[in-house]
Amino acid sequence: MSEYILGIETSCDETAAAIIKDGREIASNVVASQIESHKRFGGVVPEIASRHHVEQITLVLEETFEKAGLKMEDIDAVAVTEGPGLVGALLVGVNAAKALAFAHNKPLVGVHHIAGHIYANRLVKEFEFPLLALVVSGGHTELILMEEHGDFNIIGETRDDAAGEAYDKVARTLKLPYPGGPKIDQLAQNGEPVIDFPRAWLEDGSYDFSFSGLKSAVINTLHNAKQRGQEYKNEEIAASFQASVVEVLVEKTYRAANQYGVKQVIVAGGVAANKGLRNAMEAKFKGEATELMFPPISLCTDNAAMIAAAGSIAFNQGHRATWDLNANPGLDLERYARRKK
């Protein structure tokens, strides 16, 4: 008999639910985006996000079940993002998940949001270990080594801004409308990287990242150029900035992949949709034995299919959440991986 996992994700500004069959097949995947509501504020307003989640949650669930042609009775477990994320937003999903699991006497499984981003790729292709995942989004920049399912070791992470955050800040400096990250990528496609922005390599052998210096360099360069009466095109700034971010991401991922002899490299998270990053990664790994994988764009941004996919693994490994499950805005991935069953 098939296994059906219901996933729920409300960690930021997408209210999402999905049903995954046998851990790898999407039965339905519904995302209600709030981008339009937050646009006018130039970023996500947590209280507004939480208010939308509570309005949307049952509507999104209903659509998810309708599209899959399934009922709550058909579900084997309810998986929900317990963290990290915005606490008020997470709480809506966590409590809805508990209500469903309780009302229908189903097991409840808590999922780490980043584990979800990685497992988005298992909806495309089965994992082969050891595996290296580069998770890049508005909130995360992490290199994660996996020796087996459900095992997560962070070998590198950002020491300040996340890559996506740096994109958004530079976009704001260029006065691009929210969300600015994808627009920088578009501009970069049409510009030359004429400015040599710094690359933060940090100490020898470190797989950590740092993007706040780069962001300041962009702001300073623009300021100085203006004072000299010199002008750069937005396309040139975007291309130069992106070249710096991408070079560091690609190079560190490549080095780590070699050091750990991984079979697969997964690039996941919202910034995995970035064309510049995709192209540079593909060029770097061309002809290598390591298999390079990107989830489809629709699974790169936040969704619940990835939460159900990661939830399926946790469920089969025997993990069960209890009725006191709480939202955990600062949930640590490695601690999550070592949690008790």
Binding site: S50, I57, V87, G88, L91, N95, A96, L100, A103
Partner: peptide, 19 residues
């Protein structure tokens, strides 16, 4: 409390809807 109200409502409305 905004958060408190949402905890109750998320639980109640999801349970009522699903039952």
């Amino acid at each position: 409390s905004y958060t408190g109200v949402r905890i109750g409502l998320s639980t109640a409305k999801t349970m009522a809807w699903s039952l």
